[in-house]
Design a protein around this nucleic acid. Structure first.
Length: 485
RNA sequence: GCGGCAUUAGUCCAGCCUGGCAGGACGUCAGCUUCCCAAGCUGAAGGUCGCGGGUUCGAAUCCCGCAUGCCGCACCA
């Protein structure tokens, strides 16, 4: 199950494909979801809503993708979401200034120096372009946010680089109008945008991508007082610690052994793991990787990445960041709004724990982990709840009224379930076609159907068959796709 | 962004070195066959040979530039 095989399957069957591909000026890092991809993504997001949003009693919003400049002044992205780069005046080669200087001058540099300091260091060490020995220009910051010009005056605004900023700016109103109390999770599914220098591997590193983000607002004083924690205290958490050691402990042990900072964090890590179990991604090949201070995002005070093993190596699907009171503190200051929240007669500046999920990458992993190549067939063993098509419906042969009967069944089901009718090729060929796109069940109308009103149900994984009555199909499909604990 | 390799039908690839009708397999479609697990028979459709420029009587083929993809570096959901 290599990346190439998954990629081929995906573009051949309409899971995903490059954006704007018929034009030669199409840009890297933009990908479309086709019909099956959309279905899979919708199912995935609905599972997230069930297992995280509703399970924990969160509230979901849908914010705009374009946000005003001051949002990012406050968030720090205008300042910090940028790499210092320097361009050679002669050959135009672009280099990362901080890395280039520390490598060639043999010194280690602190993060976030002003640009002039880099210029001074380049002059002091007499550094010239490695490519052509030309002089470097002034050090600039390359910001990974996409700027957009609003209206005829082209006013500055930005495409959000993370969906959570919408949550932060909406939270003050939501607390007042939705009768919310700490702790509360805000959830959002939507697009974010980052002007990556090197997008790669289709859904894995995009410039325009989906996130399912959860921002849990809480009172720091009560972070170890989580009633809900009882539900998940025995969930096993595989943790790769910042020092490189690996340990598998229960959520309860992770707190008592001070591996994670508090109950609240452990609770959500456990919830997240239980969610991924239900996506069909193999969580035996997953871990929470604790990030060292150097590896963390600029806003994070402690961080665990949820990573999964794939053919491309360990892939980071979710960033779990403890963002402290940084976000609401900054937005309060810059907007000059009171963003504190009443909690037990005290005004609290909420602390935030975030579960920031890369949806596209997760979709890729769902497909890769479900894919199996057997002797003479390819099969996606995707969970029925996530399957783009729930059932294929076929006539065994194309005569004697079988197609009409099968079509009748198809029409009776199509508004309640994503079902697919096919009468082309041999029956075995049709089963294999559905195997390749992960359809869990195929329903075949044969001569017995005409006599006794039963159909064959053919199972994708076991390739076994059973007969059920036509009237039972509806219930059978319902129980197949029902999300269960 | 740098370095290496690549880009020809929906997919995988041959053709390129040595310029001269754009091909194969699989897939798809139509028909035949078929009472349950692909690749049986007959036929068909499907191509700006990544884009742009140059050399040439003539370019998929040679040269230059760009884009995209893969791998490595770096960065990240």
């Amino acid at each position: 199950m290599s990346y190439d095989e998954i990629y081929k399957l995906a573009i051949e069957h309409g899971f995903f494909s490059p954006s704007c591909e018929i034009y030669s000026d199409f840009q890297a890092g933009f990908w479309e979801y086709g019909p099956l991809g959309v279905a899979l993504k919708n199912n995935y997001v609905n599972l997230w809503r069930r297992e995280l949003v509703r399970r924990d009693g969160m509230v979901e919003i849908d914010g705009t993708q374009i946000m005003s400049k001051n949002v990012f002044v406050a968030s720090g992205h205008l300042e910090s979401f940028a790499d210092p780069i320097v361009v050679c005046t002669k050959c135009g080669t672009t280099t990362r200034a901080d890395r280039m200087i520390s490598e060639r001058a043999g010194i280690s540099l602190p993060e976030g120096l002003p640009e002039q300091e880099y210029d001074a260091l380049i002059a002091k060490h007499n550094l010239k372009c490695t490519n052509c020995k030309g002089d470097y220009g002034r050090v600039k910051r390359f910001n990974m946010m996409f700027r957009v010009g609003i209206g005829p005056k082209d006013d500055d605004a930005y495409l959000r680089p993370e969906t959570c900023q919408s949550i932060f700016v909406d939270a003050p109103r939501l607390f007042k109008t939705m009768r919310l109390k700490l702790p509360i999770g805000f959830a959002q599914f939507g697009k974010s945008f980052r002007n990556e220098i090197a997008p790669r591997q289709s859904l894995v590193r995009l410039r325009e991508f989906y996130q399912c983000e959860i921002e849990v607002f809480f009172n720091l004083k009560k972070a170890d007082d989580q009633a809900k924690f009882q539900d998940v205290k025995d969930v096993k958490l595989p943790i790769q610690r910042a020092d490189g050691t690996f340990i598998e402990v229960t959520a309860e042990e992770s707190v008592s052994q001070k591996i994670v900072p508090n109950q609240l964090v452990a609770y959500y890590l456990a919830l997240l793991k239980e969610f991924y179990d239900k996506t069909g991604i193999d969580t035996k090949r997953a871990r929470f990787r604790e990030l060292s201070p150097e590896d963390r995002a600029f806003y994070a005070r402690s961080a665990f990445d949820f990573e999964v093993q794939t053919s491309l190596g360990w892939m980071e699907l979710v960033a779990c960041n403890y963002r402290s009171d940084y976000d609401m503190g900054r937005h309060g200051k810059v907007s000059n709004h009171d963003v504190t929240v009443p909690d037990d007669n005290e005004k609290v500046l909420p602390h935030i724990f975030e579960i920031s999920m890369g949806v596209d990458r997760s979709i890729y992993c769902v497909i890769e982990h479900a894919y199996a190549k057997e002797n003479d067939r390819e099969v996606l063993r995707i969970k029925p709840q996530l399957a783009p098509i729930v059932a294929g419906i076929f006539p065994l042969v194309n005569k004697d009224g079988l197609p009409e009967k099968a079509q009748h069944i198809y029409h009776s089901l199509k508004r309640d379930f994503p079902v697919f009718y096919d009468e082309s090729g041999s029956i075995g060929r049709r089963y294999r076609r559905q195997d390749e796109v992960g359809t869990p069940i195929c329903i075949t109308v044969d001569y017995d159907t005409m006599k006794d009103g039963t159909v064959t149900l053919r199972d994708r994984d076991a390739m076994s068959q059973q007969r059920i009555k036509i009237e039972e199909i509806q219930n059978h499909l319902s129980s197949l796709v029902r999300l269960q604990d």
